[in-house]
């Protein structure tokens, strides 16, 4: 480390052009696909914009409407319900799967199988489950009938629609999440487990005392990523329940889509987007702080 501080300053400055060349592609992508749309969305959120006519500046009127909009709060509540079920179950199951892989098998085949649902496009997964879970003709309900259970209208009932969508997406994402956690597990030195085994610790004790504490930074990052991803639930809703029945599955991104692309209220939709952006940014920061994702207990 010492030597680098002694390097002549000119050398470092000389790296700059080369560094710029390497940074440029990513920087262009970031500016074009993230920065500019974000700034434009922020601008549009202060306008009334119906897409087919130029935007008209109206100040904070959209934001005032957002706070008084019953459907905005409903969509937020529905989304949070989705995220809690989706992330809660997904994280626990993925963690279990990752630990089993870590402690029991190194088989590449099993890892591949776990990832399979993730390789199928979201829309296809949603439509296949939608067909399989139909109350009258779905194969799942036929099976339920054989074991004497009355058919359940999984996607059709206001009470079960969101849990159903959340579980369908758990099915698709759990293998992927398990692999992410599995990667984190591999960073834990084997010597800890060997030492614990020598002391006669049980697997369960090792999980709580070794695995979980040392996995914390990796788990924190996985949680931040999956929660942000989970908030963006849209496609499953768009191809199955379309926000209904009533408002039961009108998640926030679907609400934004409806406002923008079906009702042409682009300014208002932009304001909802910015509100969501603020919520997600706060949430991510809080998580990182609370879970001390930047620190590790390995040192």
């Amino acid at each position: 480390m010492k030597t680098s501080t002694l390097r002549p300053l000119g050398r470092r400055a000389g790296d700059l052009p080369v560094a710029m060349v390497f940074l440029l592609p990513a920087a262009v992508g970031f500016a074009v696909f993230y920065l500019w749309p974000t700034l434009r969305t922020m601008y549009l959120s202060f306008t009334e914009y119906s897409l087919l006519a130029p935007p008209e500046w109206i100040g904070v009127e959209n934001y005032q409407k957002v706070f008084g909009d019953r459907l905005f709060w409903n969509s937020l509540q529905v989304t949070v319900e989705y995220v809690v079920i989706n992330i809660g179950i997904q994280t626990v199951v993925a963690l279990g799967m990752a630990v089993l892989m870590h402690r029991l098998t190194r088989s590449g085949l099993i890892r591949g199988v776990l990832l399979l649902p993730y390789l199928v496009a979201n829309v296809v997964v949603a439509l296949i489950w939608y067909t399989m879970l139909d109350a009258q003709l779905g194969i799942v309900n036929q099976a339920l009938e054989w074991i004497g259970v009355d058919p359940v209208a999984f996607f059709g009932e206001t009470s079960t629609a969101i849990p159903t969508i959340a579980l369908v997406n758990v099915w698709r994402h759990v293998g992927y999440t398990a692999l992410l956690i599995f990667a984190g597990l591999q960073a834990i030195p084997k010597t800890f487990y060997e030492a614990a085994q020598t002391d006669g610790a049980s697997e369960i004790r090792m999980f709580w005392r070794i695995t979980l504490p040392l996995l914390r930074p990796a788990l924190a990052l996985v949680l931040v990523l999956t929660i942000i991803g989970s908030f963006q639930i849209f496609d499953t809703v768009a191809v199955t329940t379309k926000g209904g029945p009533v408002n039961a599955t009108r998640v926030i991104y679907y609400y934004i889509y409806e406002q923008a692309f079906q009702r042409f209220n682009f300014g208002y939709a932009a304001a909802v987007c910015v509100a969501l952006f603020a919520i997600l940014a706060t949430l991510a920061l809080m998580q990182l702080k609370l879970l001390r994702a930047g620190e590790t207990d390995l040192d």
Partner: peptide, 11 residues
């Protein structure tokens, strides 16, 4: 007639 839930459940 089927309930709304049944009608909306997939088919």
């Amino acid at each position: 007639m089927p309930s709304l839930a049944i009608a909306r459940s997939g088919t």
